[in-house]
């Protein structure tokens, strides 16, 4: 059951990230999708991959995108 909920969360946050007008919210939604994928990796018996994924896709990539948004513009215009 957990994996189905996670899959729905991943797909929903991916779609929401791409239709968002505010790029900062898009960055946060990317992080939610990445962190959910990390939990999925744990379900799939890959704890080492899950750790890396949680750090990289769950934290570092959203921060990179947020920094890029801060240096450029926040709204998708």
């Amino acid at each position: 059951m957990l994996e189905i909920i996670l899959c729905i969360v991943i797909i929903l946050s991916a779609i929401l990230a791409l239709i968002q007008k505010d790029l900062l919210k898009a960055a946060i939604l990317t992080g939610i999708a990445g962190a959910s994928v990390a939990v999925l990796f744990q379900v799939l018996l890959a704890p080492d991959v899950a750790l890396t994924q949680a750090i990289v896709e769950g934290a570092i990539i959203p921060i990179f995108i947020a920094l890029a948004v801060k240096k450029t513009q926040r709204s998708d215009g």
Binding site: A14, A17, L18, L23, A26, A27, T30, A33, G34, V37, L40, F41, L44, L45, A46, V49, Q53, E57, I61, I65, A68, V69, T72, D76
Partner: peptide
Amino acid sequence: IKKIIGISFIEEGVNLFIVAIGYK
């Protein structure tokens, strides 16, 4: 920026697929 976010989703999808191969 949304293009780049989309590219990161492609990579995530491929990674998920490859991990699913190893699952038992």
